[in-house]
C-alpha cells in the first residue's frame, strides 16, 4: 500500500515538471529571440515570408495567449511542422524514438555488464594495483569527449580492421517492424542473418556510449561495495563464517546494486543526451541525428520539438526508474 502512495506521489509531480519544461522551451523559442518569426523563417526568408509565418503561428499575439495556444497544441500532440520537410515533427520524432532507445538500452546493458563487475573487483582490491588501474581507466572514461572516442573506434575497428561498418543502422532492408528495435525484431522473425547485420551496426555506437556510462557505474559500485564491506552485517556474516563468496555475491552485491540503481536514472539520461552527439558520428537514424540535421538546416521548429520531446522522455524514464527502485528496496516497500 505504502508503495502505491509513494508511486502516486512521484507521478503527481510529473505534470508540473512537464509544464515547467514546456515553459522553458517556450521561453527559449518565443521570448529570448528579438523576433521569433525571423528566427523560425530562417536567414534567407523575405520580409513577406516572415510576415506570413508570424500570422500563421500567431506570433503577433500577446505572450500569454501564445503560451496557451502552444500548450493546447502540445496536449493535442502537435509539436509543429518541420520547416524543412513540411511534415509534423512529432511523426519524425516518434519514428526515430525506437532507434535511439535501442542504442541507449543496449549501451545501458553493456555499461552495467562492464561497470558492475569492474566496480566490485576494484573495491575488493582496494588500493592495490588492479584498483588503481581500474580507477585510472574510470577517470579517463569520464573525461573523454564521446564523439572523439566514437571517431577513434571508427578509425580502428571500421577503417583499419574493417570488422564493423563505419556508420548507419543496417544495409538492405531492415526486419519487419514490431518493436522498432532491429536486433529484437530480427530475433522475433527468426532471421539470424539480419540479426547479425543489425548487431554489427549496433556495436560501435553502443560501445561508445557505454564507456562513460560504465565509468560512472564503476564509481558508484565501488563506493557501494566499500560501504557494504565495512558494514556491520558483513562483519556479522564473516564472524559467523559464511563463505566469502556468498557474502560478496549475495549480500554485498545486492546492496551495492541498490545504490547503483539510484544512479541508473542519471546514467540513462546521460546516455540519451550522449546519443544526440554519438548518432551524428555513426549516422544512426535516431533523435540525435534528427536534431543534428535540424541544426544544419536551421529547422527551428524541429529543434524546439526535439528539446521538448527528449526532455519529456527523460522525465518519464526517470519516473519509471524511481518507481522500480522503490520496489526493489524492502525498506521503502
Amino acid at each position: 500500500m505504502r508503495i502505491l502512495v509513494l508511486a502516486l506521489r512521484r507521478i503527481a509531480w510529473m505534470p508540473p515538471t512537464l509544464l515547467g519544461l514546456i515553459a522553458i522551451v517556450f521561453t527559449i523559442s518565443r521570448i529570448i529571440p528579438a523576433d521569433p518569426a525571423r528566427v523560425i523563417a530562417g536567414e534567407n526568408a523575405s520580409p513577406a515570408q516572415v510576415e506570413a509565418l508570424r500570422q500563421k503561428f500567431g506570433l503577433d499575439l500577446p505572450l500569454m495567449q501564445q503560451f496557451m495556444r502552444y500548450l493546447r497544441d502540445i496536449v493535442n500532440g502537435d509539436l509543429g511542422i518541420s520547416l524543412y520537410s513540411q511534415r509534423p515533427v512529432v511523426e519524425d520524432l516518434l519514428g526515430r524514438l525506437a532507434a535511439t532507445f535501442e542504442l541507449a538500452i543496449a549501451a545501458m546493458c553493456l555499461a552495467i555488464m562492464i561497470g558492475v563487475p569492474l566496480g566490485v573487483v576494484s573495491a575488493l582490491h582496494r588500493n592495490r594495483w588492479l584498483d588503481q588501474v581500474i580507477r585510472l581507466a574510470t577517470m579517463a572514461g569520464l573525461a573523454m569527449a564521446a564523439f572523439w572516442l566514437a571517431i577513434l573506434l571508427q578509425l580502428f575497428f571500421s577503417m583499419t580492421l574493417g570488422v564493423t561498418p563505419v556508420q548507419g543502422r543496417i544495409d538492405g532492408w531492415g526486419p519487419d517492424q514490431i518493436t522498432g528495435f532491429y536486433t529484437i525484431d530480427a530475433l522475433i522473425n527468426g532471421d539470424g542473418e539480419t540479426f547479425g547485420k543489425a548487431l554489427r551496426y549496433l556495436i560501435l555506437p553502443t560501445a561508445t556510449l557505454a564507456i562513460p556510462a560504465a565509468a560512472t557505474i564503476v564509481r558508484f559500485t565501488r563506493a557501494g561495495v566499500l560501504n557494504a564491506l565495512s558494514s556491520n552485517f558483513v562483519f556479522y556474516q564473516t564472524a559467523m563464517g559464511l563463505p566469502r563468496r556468498t557474502i560478496i555475491w549475495k549480500y554485498i552485491l545486492r546492496s551495492a546494486f541498490i545504490g547503483t540503481l539510484t544512479q541508473i536514472g542519471l546514467v540513462f539520461g546521460n546516455l540519451l543526451a550522449g546519443a544526440v552527439v554519438i548518432e551524428t558520428v555513426f549516422s544512426w537514424p535516431g533523435l540525435g541525428l534528427f536534431a543534428y540535421n535540424s541544426i544544419l538546416q536551421s529547422d527551428y521548429n524541429a529543434i524546439m520539438a526535439f528539446t521538448l520531446f527528449t526532455g519529456s522522455v527523460f522525465i518519464v524514464v526517470n519516473l519509471l526508474i524511481d518507481i522500480a527502485q522503490t520496489l526493489l528496496d524492502p525498506r521503502t516497500r
Binding site: S231, Y236, G241, Y251, R254, P330
Partner: peptide, 27 residues
C-alpha cells in the same frame, strides 16, 4: 578451515548491535 568449521560452527557469535547486523535487503 577456520571459516568452514570454527566460525559459526564450533564457535558462534552474538553481535552487539542487532539493528545493523542483518542485511536490510533480505527477509
Amino acid at each position: 578451515e577456520a571459516e568452514e568449521s570454527i566460525r559459526g560452527r564450533a564457535i558462534s557469535f552474538v553481535p552487539q548491535d542487532p539493528f545493523t547486523s542483518f542485511s536490510p535487503l533480505f527477509s
